[in-house]
Amino acid sequence: MVLPSGFTFPVAYLAVLGAAALAVGYALSRADPVVDATTILAWGPWMAVGSTLYVASQLGLVGGVLAPAVTAPTVYLTTFVAAGVVWLATLRTPYPRRVFAGVGFLVLSVPISLALRYGATHGGLTLAWPLAGGVAACAVTAVVWVALDQLAPDATRVAGAAGALVVFGHTLDAATTAVGIDILGFHEQTPLSDIVIQAGAAVVPGYGGWLFLLVKTLLAAGIVVLLAEYAREEPREGFLLYGLVAAVGLGPGAHNFLLFVVTTP
């Protein structure tokens, strides 16, 4: 993931949001919702909400009392609390997962719209290369999933849409990172990721992102397979782990994609 600016830690907000997150988590455990591959897929848009809100924060589009709630890392607690409350509410509807995903997309449209408006009025939008990264992520995901279905059909059958989301999230993160660093002039600030990228650049000078994409893709595919047996035996815990792993990839990937569209060095 590309991190153009540092994290901030507003302690008061962290305390309040931490308490709210615990309360929401407790309420969800009492509600005992179904957690399966479809549930994790429904969380997909919410996984991108926090990272796109962070982009809006980086651009200075959120001010006043709300500003600390959308900086890192508090933005992820904010998103979890909001998503958890919505999830609890949608459990009362006939189609909770559909409604939950739909509300997620509506919420996601807000920071995206704000950021796009900012980019359009501050130098224009850079669409071609970020879109190329997104297309590459879709293509790699399709190839990897077909290969996994041939090599480990039991794993893909158990993981289902949750496993596909894991692969897509991490390939999106890796592909957009490669585009941002190798082509658009951004810099990687995560030390371990930078080591991998520099190793790739040592093989192909000026283009180190290919190795990062390869490593992330293989790791994501491996995790899908490794978690399959756990998800079969303990579906709730197993699919929650799939969701966590997917969020760790999809969130940064969505952040990179939107940031690169609206700001170019």
Results as ranks from 00 to 15, higher is better:
3 L>I: 12
3 L>P: 00
6 G>E: 13
8 T>N: 06
10 P>C: 06
10 P>W: 14
11 V>W: 15
11 V>K: 13
12 A>F: 15
19 A>N: 08
21 A>M: 12
22 L>K: 00
24 V>F: 07
28 L>P: 04
30 R>M: 13
30 R>A: 15
33 P>D: 10
39 T>R: 03
40 I>F: 05
40 I>R: 03
44 G>D: 07
44 G>W: 11
46 W>P: 09
46 W>C: 01
53 L>T: 03
55 V>H: 08
55 V>R: 00
56 A>C: 09
61 L>V: 06
66 L>W: 13
70 V>A: 04
72 A>H: 02
72 A>I: 02
73 P>G: 03
73 P>W: 05
73 P>E: 08
74 T>N: 13
74 T>A: 15
78 T>F: 14
79 T>V: 07
82 A>D: 03
85 V>E: 01
85 V>H: 00
87 W>C: 06
92 R>C: 05
95 Y>E: 13
95 Y>P: 00
97 R>W: 14
103 V>P: 08
103 V>D: 11
104 G>I: 09
107 V>G: 11
110 V>P: 11
112 I>F: 12
112 I>W: 07
113 S>W: 12
114 L>F: 10
114 L>T: 02
115 A>Y: 10
116 L>N: 03
118 Y>E: 10
119 G>M: 09
123 G>L: 11
129 W>D: 03
129 W>F: 12
133 G>Y: 04
136 A>K: 05
139 A>Q: 04
143 V>Y: 05
144 V>Q: 02
145 W>S: 08
149 D>Q: 12
150 Q>I: 11
150 Q>C: 08
155 A>P: 03
157 R>C: 04
157 R>T: 14
159 A>H: 07
161 A>Y: 13
162 A>W: 07
165 L>P: 06
168 F>G: 00
172 L>F: 10
174 A>M: 08
177 T>A: 08
181 I>W: 03
184 L>R: 09
186 F>H: 11
189 Q>P: 00
189 Q>L: 14
192 L>V: 15
197 I>P: 01
199 A>F: 14
203 V>K: 01
210 W>Y: 14
214 L>M: 09
215 V>W: 11
215 V>G: 01
215 V>T: 08
216 K>W: 14
217 T>M: 05
219 L>T: 13
220 A>R: 01
222 G>W: 11
224 V>E: 05
229 E>R: 15
230 Y>M: 15
231 A>F: 09
234 E>M: 04
237 E>H: 11
243 G>T: 10
243 G>N: 04
245 V>F: 14
246 A>E: 08
249 G>S: 07
251 G>N: 00
254 A>P: 03
255 H>E: 02
256 N>R: 01
259 L>A: 10
263 T>V: 15
